[in-house]
């Protein structure tokens, strides 16, 4: 390190002169930028090239680029407008679809309710019919039971009359008519 430093130090004056030379090669003329005889040709060529450049830019190059960019902008605008329109249509379709869906749903519920109601009504009706039928059968049965009971009771009286006739004739040898027995029985029943 130190060795390098000493080498560097030894070289420093040399570097200084090098820099001075680098900056100062043409010391006689001073800064080349301030050399006045050079101004005229530079100004002339600057004016010439800049005016030419301006004319070329204005007449040819920039309108072309501007045209393409403008066209692209228009195209994008158009495409965006189309996309907007399509989006609107999609939304409309979506709305219609949703409305249809809602309608269908309400329809379905109403149909279900109707069906349920009508089924309930039918079931009620049927149940009522069956109940009526059952009631009728019951009353019929009751009527037939009472009829049978009455008949049976009547038969019992009849049989009792017959039996009384037979018993009286067997015991007393008297012939008793059935009518007499019956009236007697009826009197005893009272």
């Amino acid at each position: 390190m130190i060795a390098a430093m000493t080498v560097l130090a030894a070289e420093l004056p040399g570097i200084a002169t090098d820099v001075a030379e680098a900056l100062d090669e043409h010391k006689s003329g001073g800064l080349p930028q301030l050399n006045q005889p050079d101004f005229a040709p530079q100004l002339f060529w600057l004016a010439l090239t800049f005016v030419l450049l301006y004319v070329i830019m204005k007449r040819v190059a920039l309108p072309r680029i501007g045209e393409v960019i403008e066209e692209r902008k228009d195209r994008i605008q158009r495409d965006l407008a189309a996309a907007e329109r399509l989006k609107g249509e999609t939304e409309k379709a979506l709305q219609a679809y949703e409305k249809a869906l809602a309608d269908a749903r309400s329809n379905a519920t109403s149909i279900a309710r109707q069906t349920r109601d009508s089924l309930n009504a039918e079931v009620d009706k049927e149940r009522k019919a069956i109940e009526d039928q059952l009631a009728k059968k019951l009353s019929d049965a009751e009527a037939s039971i009472t009829a049978t009971k009455d008949k049976a009771l009547a038969s019992v009286k009849d049989i009792a009359g017959d039996t009384v006739v037979s018993i009286v004739s067997a015991l007393t040898n008297l012939s008793v008519s059935k009518d007499e027995v019956n009236s007697a029985l009826a009197a005893s029943e009272k």
């Binding site: 005889p37 005229a40 040709p41 530079q42 002339f44 060529w45 600057l46 030419l52 450049l53």
Partner: peptide, 15 residues
């Protein structure tokens, strides 16, 4: 003096 200099060369080159 309108000599074609190295500066002119680069201006024309740029153009």
């Amino acid at each position: 003096d309108i000599s074609f200099t190295n500066a002119s060369l680069f201006m024309v080159l740029a153009l």
